[in-house]
Simulated assay, not measured.
Amino acid sequence: MSKFNQLLTTLSLKSKTPFPIVPRQSIAGRTLALLVGIMTFLSCATFGSVYLVQNSALAWSSEVGREVTIQLQPVEEEVMLSNIRTAISLAQQSPGVGRAFELTLEDSQDLLTPWLGEKFDISTFNVPRLVIVQLNNPAVFDLEALKTKLVTAVPEASVDTHALWQQQLNAMAGTVVLSGTLALALILAATVLTIVFATSGAMATNREIVDVLHFIGASDNYIAGAFQERFLAIGLQGGLIGGAMSILFFFIASTITNAVLPVQSATQVELLFGQFTLGWFGLLGLILVVAVIAILTAITSRITVHRFLTQVAP
């Protein structure tokens, strides 16, 4: 048995607990745990926001891709009613169509009210009438065939597939995901730098202890392992705190959206972020973020310790 192992055995017998190289309770440790918790909260909030927006965008894109709008230009009321019936009939006869129905003036009024106000009266304007075509199988739907039939039967009709909206939604979702990924990478980089400075400070503070351990035969791997164990505990502690705070944040945001905001504002927020409900996959993602930060803390501290020991080696 080496002198170092004999020393550890003696200290353990006297204290009845393993003798720690790195102090378990220190102001630096508590401060670092708080910093890791803040970084974890920001990482989880970024991940959760990106996850919610992406899910909403995918739902929008899927819904938009399953709808086609037939627009009928304003004509006399009798002719308009006939054109609407003809458009609905032709749409329902097309393969892949599940349902076709008229969007009444009252429906259009309800859609425009949030933007134009309660006093807006759509009946005073000659607005186009709309027929909504919902697809149950977009793969077999023949758009060109429907356009040809409509142009022949109703010259005033035009068809909109919402492809432009779908492209814009996909582009927005891609931009949000890319921006969130970059923000998450920057937060993780800041976390790494924080751990590097904290580990370097701890090593400098405990320089005499490290020298003594070297003198009595402790290896660099043992010393680095001790610091890694300590910083892993700090990373897990801060990560759990930050993860719990992020879950609480999304719960409070969901409560505020449903109970505090006006109905119209809550509807708009819900359209953008959904119900603020992460679901099981979202919670699993938050747990993964916490685990990554804890592991990153341990690995970063070990690498920093090895570099420090290399520089101070006699």
Rank of each mutant, 00 (worst) to 15 (best):
M1A: 13
N5Y: 12
L7K: 10
S15G: 12
A28Y: 08
T31M: 14
G37C: 03
M39K: 06
C44L: 05
A45W: 05
A45C: 04
Y51A: 07
Q54E: 14
N55P: 08
S61P: 08
T69P: 07
I70G: 00
Q73T: 10
V75P: 02
V79P: 07
M80E: 06
M80Y: 05
T86A: 06
S89A: 10
Q92I: 09
Q92W: 06
Q93M: 08
F101A: 10
L103P: 03
L105I: 09
D107F: 12
Q109K: 03
D110H: 12
W115P: 12
S123F: 10
S123G: 11
L130E: 05
L146Q: 00
E156D: 13
A157M: 02
S158W: 03
T161Q: 09
H162T: 06
A163I: 11
Q168C: 11
L178A: 15
L178Q: 08
S179F: 11
G180C: 00
G180D: 00
L188V: 13
L188A: 09
T191G: 11
V192F: 01
F197V: 14
A198E: 01
S200Q: 15
A204I: 15
I216Y: 03
G217M: 05
A224E: 02
I234D: 00
I241K: 02
F249E: 03
I252K: 09
T255K: 14
V260C: 00
P262W: 04
T267E: 11
T267F: 11
G274K: 00
F281C: 14
L284V: 10
L286K: 01
V289T: 02
V292G: 11
I293T: 01
R302E: 05
H306C: 12
Q311K: 11
